[in-house]
Design a protein around this nucleic acid. Structure first.
Lengths: 345, 345
DNA sequence: CGATGTCGTGTAAGCGCTTACACTGATCTC
DNA sequence: GAGATCAGTGTAAGCGCTTACACGACATCG
């Protein structure tokens, strides 16, 4: 195909090959690549052209081994399937790129065990720091992290009382605010569709927020019908059917996130229920999908991009030795679109 | 917090630490981890408990350096923003996992230069093979890949004539089929909203498919109004407005993918146009969103999961030395939902 | 003008791991 | 019962890179 490769003389060129071709030592080549200003221009040019000619790319593993730093940050998110974390992660990556760092992403499928495995993998791969979602993880995992002294930042939650720094929002307060609105609209029987709460502090905090609002308005605990199911549109739809299949169904269904809410919305339509005429539905996250469905979803807006960007900054600061990270709180706000209406009488 | 770490005696444990604690050589520890059956059980147990006790995790870089294999496959997709590649990649990852391989994902933002950088990065990180999207890339990149002799599989297209093996579908034929249907419904002026065609063979093939169908029915080339814009809902909406802002607007707008189509659909609603009463809209990909919008989108179904799964199998086979990969063609089919209707008269 | 810096470069010691090879006892074979 | 075989383990040589240190060649200075 190309004239440059007569056969396959040396499968992959190394620093040494470059050095030989340029007639310098490996140290000089290394310096050209990492600290170009410590090498005189004439030498540098010679080295660089050798690099090009050979199609040399430094071996990352070897580099990490020798330098003990990888400029890589790992992130483990519960899922890549839907858009919940996509936007935040995108911003995270962009900001990291600005600082010359690379992102390594893994997903845990909402499983504690998988997450532990992924943490080990990312550490093994030399991540200089980790971004994790939520606080819930086993002591063993925490110990491991501490033993390796990898800086960890927890995102999507804000909890200054935890030992690990976090960046995010107050899930409980955010959902409480939404519940207040729902109650203000006259709803007294509230269905709740949430992700499984154990091992998911975002989910449990949100449910807790609803409980608090109900208590504040002297609504009995059994006025809330809680259904837990993993995040997916299908599951949201199924859960909605179950929640509504009761002698005294709720007039509003609050969902733990938008994906579940969109499922609920579909189910409602299939059941011939008008939203919000017959039943109100609310979401959480304000993902793109929320304004695409019909009617557009009333939900809690989460500042995904800001969160991602700030997470990157905090991590970079910490790695540059500018002191420990401070937990940071971002604001959410209600997006009262069209799926929440007054309680039917 | 925990009692196990009095201070920080040795930041991160190494093979040697484990060996010392277990009273064996590093070779034995290594064997316990990689080929457990070559070590007698009593020794192995001792080693393993040392591993646990120390929280040891092998250094990936060092391992790759010594073993010259990483069991890692890299994939570079144009974007993570929307769901176009998500499902396929998920399946790809799952299948890789079954074979003990790990996936490293990067995104190129539809930029050739970024992709080249990412390819280098993934190679540097030791990817044993690469999954790339589409055939379009510079000769320099191709040379680089060949020089390093990294197996490459191209996905989301099928083209047995290219030197690189591919797995996917015939974008041109798939879109031609859709265009045939559109024409059969009586449409004669067709708007086309596509991603920029240069450097995106999927996009250009799809447009070409429309051209072929139109030619086959003796429609003049200028019966097609083509608008190119990057994939995003917003862009789709904007392009739709432009396409329709003509003295003689098209009666059907065919979009290069579902994301654009959903944007077009929104724009149509905002403009007070009924779909498909006033104007028909079609998509491509059949992402989840396609059936969530109202009315559900007529689109081309692409077997994302099959493609991902088979891509993984092909790659694994190749790495196991079972001969070179063969280009594989998958079928698409039309999903005629509710956004395509007869041409208004 | 010899002592002292400074700058650009080379030398070589690892970084943590795998693995070819060597070694040691058992077990087996005739 | 001596030699062959073999399973289990240790020894040590790298893998490709960074970087502390050494070194020579100048420029600078009192």
């Amino acid at each position: 195909m190309t004239a440059k490769a007569p056969q396959a003389p040396r499968p992959v060129p190394t620093l040494e090959d470059v050095a030989r071709l340029a007639g310098v030592s490996t140290a000089t080549v290394s310096r050209c690549l990492n600290t170009p200003d410590r090498v005189v221009k004439s030498t540098r040019d010679r080295v660089m052209s050798a690099v090009d000619q050979l199609g040399y790319a430094p071996n990352f593993g070897a580099r990490a081994l020798a330098a003990k730093r990888t400029n890589t940050i790992g992130a483990i998110i519960p899922t890549m399937e839907n858009a919940i974390f996509a936007r935040g992660l995108q911003a995270f990556q962009e900001e990291l790129g600005l600082h010359g760092m690379t992102l390594l992403v893994a997903s845990s499928s909402y499983s504690e065990d998988v997450e532990r495995e992924q943490i080990r993998t990312l550490c093994a791969r030399g991540a200089d720091a980790l971004l994790l979602i939520g606080h819930h993880r086993s002591q063993g995992t925490l110990d491991f992290l501490e033993a390796r002294s990898v800086p960890v930042l927890v995102a999507w939650v804000y909890d200054p009382d935890k030992p690990q720094p976090s960046i995010g929002f107050d899930n409980r307060a955010a959902m409480r605010e939404m519940a207040e609105l729902v109650i203000a609209k006259g709803h007294r029987r509230i269905g709740v569709i949430s992700a499984p709460c154990d091992s998911n502090d975002r989910a449990s905090e949100r449910v807790q927020g609803i409980r608090e609002a109900m208590a504040a308005h002297a609504l009995p605990a059994d006025a809330m019908a809680l259904h837990e199911t993993p995040y997916s549109i299908e599951n949201g739809a199924a859960a909605f059917r179950q929640v509504m299949d009761s002698p005294d169904p709720p007039t509003a269904v609050m969902c733990g996130n938008d994906v579940l809410a969109v499922g609920a919305l579909r189910a409602a339509r299939q059941m011939g229920l008008s939203v919000p005429g017959d039943v109100s539905i609310t979401g959480f996250d304000d993902i793109e999908l929320a304004q695409l469905v019909d009617p557009p979803l009333t939900t809690v807006h989460v500042p995904h991009r800001d969160m991602g960007r700030m997470a990157a900054r905090l991590l970079v600061q910490q790695l540059n030795g500018d002191g420990p990270m401070a937990s940071t709180r971002l604001d959410t706000y209600l997006c009262d679109r069209e799926t929440l209406g007054p309680a039917p009488r």
